[in-house]
Simulated scan of single mutants.
Amino acid sequence: MARKRGPFEIWSERRQREGSNVTLIDLYRIAAEARGLAAHELPLAERAALRDRALPVMWPGYQVPAGTERAEDPVEIVAYDPAWPARFQSWRGRLAGALGEAAMRIQHVGSTAVPDLPAKPVIDVLVSVLDLDLEGSYVPAIESLGIQFRSRDDLHRYFRPFSGLPRDVQVHVCVAGTNWERRHLLFRDYLRTDESARDAYLAAKLEAARRWRDDRIAYADAKTEVIVRLMQRAESWAVETGWRARRSLPPPGPGLRSPRPPQTPARVRRGSSAPR
């Protein structure tokens, strides 16, 4: 007699067929519906167990070093704070001093890098390096600043403050010039230039925070559909404006809602292939 498939097996098969469009929340939904619950009504401990099985599938190479746990803070979206750019600059200086030549560049990404966009009050810092596997060249330096190495996957490394410290910053390390780096910079720059995109993203953030306040991974997952749609628009914008990651937009100056996009170079034409 065949063994009955559990929620994770059903989800895994769907993901193999349909790809990354099958999300963590879909796994929660499969498990919850069998009991007449909505996905967000599934007990947190059960969601955590499912999440631990799903993340290595969602993020190939995903690993969590032992002893890096900390209590999860609830997801809270607050009004844009004009002090966020200065907070990033402070962290940038500290990281640059600690990392030296290991850091190819250090940039402000995420919602706190977009003027007028409400966000979680956590500064996202993107550090680009030459070789992600040379963890000894950057992990001790970042941890010396009180930011703990929390996870690795094939494309990036993630750091957050040690347990007991305020969760007001998180650091992402990726390889310079990769698509992982490019997509984060492009999404940031596009949101800086397009008010309708910011509004759409904010609506998704607020709904995700309302439903997934106690689950940060599900909060991020709930925004996937909107991010995919906005990234399609961002790629078109990149072609039209000649945007390149190596000359991504600076943060706007005082009193400006958003910077003007760079002028379209003569060699770039509407409908041409996306920049590499």
Rank of each mutant, 00 (worst) to 15 (best):
D221N: 12
M1D: 13
S273T: 11
I217V: 12
S273Q: 12
V125S: 04
S128Q: 02
A208R: 01
I227W: 05
H156D: 14
D73E: 15
M231P: 01
D124N: 09
D168Y: 05
L206A: 07
V228L: 11
R276S: 14
G100P: 06
E18V: 08
V125H: 03
R270S: 15
A49D: 15
A103R: 01
I227S: 06
F187C: 03
L202E: 09
A86G: 11
P56M: 13
P60F: 02
E143V: 07
G67M: 12
D133A: 15
L165P: 02
I142C: 11
A141E: 15
W59S: 03
P140I: 03
G19N: 06
V125E: 05
E225H: 09
V64R: 14
F149G: 08
A79P: 07
G36C: 12
A119W: 00
V127E: 02
L249I: 09
A103C: 12
P60A: 03
Y28V: 03
R53A: 15
R29E: 11
A204T: 00
P43Y: 12
E13K: 07
S128D: 07
L191N: 01
A79S: 15
P275Y: 00
Q148C: 02
L55G: 15
R247T: 15
P265W: 08
P262F: 00
G19A: 08
A197G: 11
G6Y: 03
Q16I: 00
A31W: 03
E33H: 13
A39H: 08
K223D: 11
R47D: 12
R276V: 05
P115W: 02
R198S: 14
P254N: 00
P254D: 03
E72M: 05
Q107P: 05
G255D: 04
A234V: 05
I217W: 09
G164C: 12
R35G: 09
V127M: 06
A176R: 07
E207S: 04
I106E: 11
R244P: 01
E195F: 02
R70W: 05
V109Q: 03
L130E: 13
A31D: 01
E13T: 08
W59T: 08
E195D: 13
W237K: 00
L206Y: 04
K4P: 07
I123E: 12
T193Q: 15
P56T: 12
A45C: 05
T224Y: 11
N21V: 14
I147D: 06
R233Q: 13
V75C: 12
R210E: 08
D168C: 07
G136P: 04
L99Y: 04
T112I: 08
Q63R: 15
A218N: 07
